[in-house]
Design a protein around this nucleic acid. Structure first.
Lengths: 214, 214
DNA sequence: GGGAGCATACCGACCGTTTAGTATGCCGCG
DNA sequence: CGCGGCATACTAAACGGTCGGTATGCTCCC
């Protein structure tokens, strides 16, 4: 972690350690990651970590806030100025892209699941993130309903909950079985199906047309 | 853990310890559960655990096999002799019921996620379970297609993958936020949507009829 | 320019506690 | 009596965290 000249630089220590902690937590989870492991991977000693962070929990909090911020930026950027149906597509796409990237995609699911019943501060943050994500999706669906693109009688909240479920469930299975579980295809199927369901009368024809596309 | 008469009975030790380990692993995860905790909750000492199990990993293996067996029994029982559409409904229902039961429902998701990248034997078992579950669902969908109940051009594999994703994702969110995430409603919405998609021409009318049902 | 003073970033040793596992002893039952 | 089912005491290593000290960077003043 030290720069090549081996002099001590100011300012990057905390950020670099957070990045390494994110990698470790994403792979081993919080309980499975020791401070010694983080220190070792950073090429420093534990003392250096405790210089920047009050505790292991403090380090976890920094990691969680970093990942939540990145996630929300990614989702918002994906559907800027797009139509509601295109927005839903793009969100599914960026989730799939991130899940297959090198940016420690497993962090959110690992820490979310691990923290259930055992780490209330993290659960609170993750819960907030998921609520915001569902609200964001619900608002997209409602915008489509307001614009007569989607049928008005669909339950936007339930569909938003379903969208987030499909994303979490598909990512989990992909991480478990990357050779045999196709994340992108599953999410694409999901969005197709949801949009079919959301579209107005005439959907049966659209579906026949869909078959021709393949 | 000892019976009231305080005599030492044979045969139940291993099974009782497995049950307590399942509870602990379901709550704290594998890394977050110490042998001492399991012993304490069982009312015995570590020595008793090591009498029955060779190692902590051995105990985990017993727990995993137990839970996988129970899950598969439950799913198969749910849809015995039912039509394909009814089968899909029932499977979603029993998953929701189990997730809200006292039978340590979080075990599978906790251990599945925790083991990704860190515990290959458990990943293998969980992967096998999920593959069997998807194959089971796929076969139900195909039976519906063969019986002309479902349209023949739907991708049964993709829909099975979507079904399992919805279940995992909805359960995860429910465990994270039981007050604000409605598991049963989400899975019901999912099954409705999937069956709408799977049904043959006339689906548009069926959907109009669906709106009237509410 | 250089030295003093201070702040920051880190080090290595240490602490008390906890961990998975081991060895040995004891008790009850058939 | 022997064996299964435990309990107890112990081991070495690992855990999160603390502490005194060192190295370096920066600023100010003579």
């Amino acid at each position: 972690m030290l720069p090549e000249g081996r002099s001590r630089r100011s300012g990057d220590g905390r950020r670099d350690l957070t990045a390494i902690a994110i990698s470790c937590f994403a792979r081993y989870g919080y309980q499975g990651t020791s401070i010694d492991r983080i220190a070792r991977e950073a090429g420093v000693t534990k003392g250096a970590i405790y210089h920047h962070f009050r505790s292991k929990e403090d380090l976890l909090a920094a990691a969680v806030m970093d990942r939540i911020g990145e996630f929300e930026t990614r989702v918002q950027s994906a559907c800027r100025a797009a139509a509601p149906d295109e927005s839903l597509r793009r969100i599914a796409e960026v989730c799939a892209q991130h899940a297959t990237s090198e940016d420690r995609p497993r962090f959110a699911i690992k820490l979310m699941v691990e923290s259930i019943e055992t780490n209330d501060p993290v659960v609170e943050e993750m819960r907030g993130m998921m609520r915001r994500f569902r609200a964001f999706l619900r608002n997209i669906i409602r915008a489509g309903q307001d614009g007569a693109l989607f049928r008005a009688d669909a339950d936007a909240d339930a569909l938003a909950a379903l969208f987030t479920s499909a994303v979490i469930g598909a990512e989990t299975q992909f991480y478990l079985d990357p050779k045999r579980f196709s994340l992108e295809h599953t999410l694409e199927t999901f969005v197709d199906q949801m949009l079919d369901n959301l579209r107005l009368a005439g959907a049966a024809q659209a579906r026949e047309g869909g078959a021709i596309r393949d």
